[in-house]
């Protein structure tokens, strides 16, 4: 039981990391990014290509994550500009369709040009034993990275003036603009930041097992489920929902099998929307 729970929490941290970008972009930019999983894949493929050219795993991963951030920045400044011209439902709709198109463009391009590229990073020491429980060292490394990333994100949002500005836009875009905050510049920052976070999750997948070019859709779906269950505007909610669903995923796949597990997760997302659209954990956070 305990190893399953630990597996669940480790996986849940990765889910949170993957999903928090969706929450940030939706909360701040009013766009539900359906190409979010593809950001993670971009980082993984970039790192894999660099490693294929003889670069070490650590610098390659670092540059891969940076590539996803830059990619996010470019997308915000190009593809999403027309969507930002609208507000409310119109922007949501256009953003949804544009990022859906983008996800297919990325998937199609990567499958055509790099069909056999995959990222696998092996750590020097495969496993550790703590208190009699054996844990894969990859699980420890990725969990620490995720906790570090979330810690920095919370510090940034709570402790800095820019973080305050970002939270003010999430609360009310027009109000923030009236106070002299530029939504478009903060938006670019946030989309780039979300790209970095997704990229980190992508590289972490390479540490766990391997990341292939076809995994973008799966990542997007998982991230979407977590973001929805956490309430797509709440960062704390996304963090908790990721861990919760990670544990649910571990228990369900141990006791019931893979198909049922995904159906349970999807059902959780559907029910959340129907019962409490602001997120299951909206009160609690």
């Amino acid at each position: 039981m305990v190893p399953i729970l630990i597996d669940g929490i480790v996986y849940g941290l990765q889910l949170s990391l993957l999903a928090v970008g969706i929450t940030l972009i939706y909360g701040l930019g009013g766009v539900l990014n359906l190409a979010h999983g593809q950001f993670a894949v971009v980082a993984g493929v970039a790192a894999a290509l660099l490693m294929g050219n003889g670069m070490g795993a650590a610098p390659a991963s670092f540059l891969g994550v940076a590539a996803a951030g830059i990619f996010g920045l470019l997308i915000d400044r190009s593809l999403l500009v027309p969507a930002y011209r609208y507000r409310g439902e119109e922007r949501l709709l256009l953003g949804l369709v544009l990022t859906l198109g983008l996800s297919f463009v990325i998937d199609g391009y990567l499958n055509l040009s790099h069909p056999n590229v995959s990222l696998t990073i092996r750590l020097p020491m495969p496993s550790l034993t703590v208190l009699g429980i054996t844990i894969r060292s990859a699980a420890v490394v990725t969990s620490l990275l995720a906790i570090l990333a979330f810690g920095l994100l919370f510090l940034f949002l709570r402790g800095t003036l820019l973080g305050k500005a970002i939270r003010s836009i999430i609360q009310n875009e027009v109000g923030a603009e009236l106070c002299g905050i530029s939504p478009s510049r903060t938006r670019t920052l946030i989309v780039a930041l979300s790209g970095l976070l997704a990229g980190l999750a992508g590289v972490a997948q390479g540490l766990f097992s391997s990341l292939g070019t076809e995994m973008g859709v799966e990542f997007t779906i998982l991230a979407l489920i977590v973001a929805v269950v956490g309430g797509v505007r709440s960062i704390n909610g996304t963090f908790v929902a990721g861990i919760l669903l990670g544990v649910v995923n571990a228990l369900a796949s141990y006791y019931m099998g893979a198909y049922v597990t995904l159906i349970i997760l999807l059902g959780a997302a559907m029910l959340t929307i129907l019962i409490r659209p602001s997120g299951l954990l909206a009160y609690w956070t």
Binding site: L92, Y259, I263, L266, P277
Partner: peptide
């Protein structure tokens, strides 16, 4: 009835479409 906007209807129907896919596989 639940006042779901574009996004939430999109997510609910997307979830249904994946549930269908996995049910057929399962």
């Amino acid at each position: 009835r639940r006042g779901l906007g574009v996004i939430f209807l999109g997510v609910v129907t997307l979830a249904f479409s994946l549930i269908f896919y996995n049910l057929v596989l399962g």
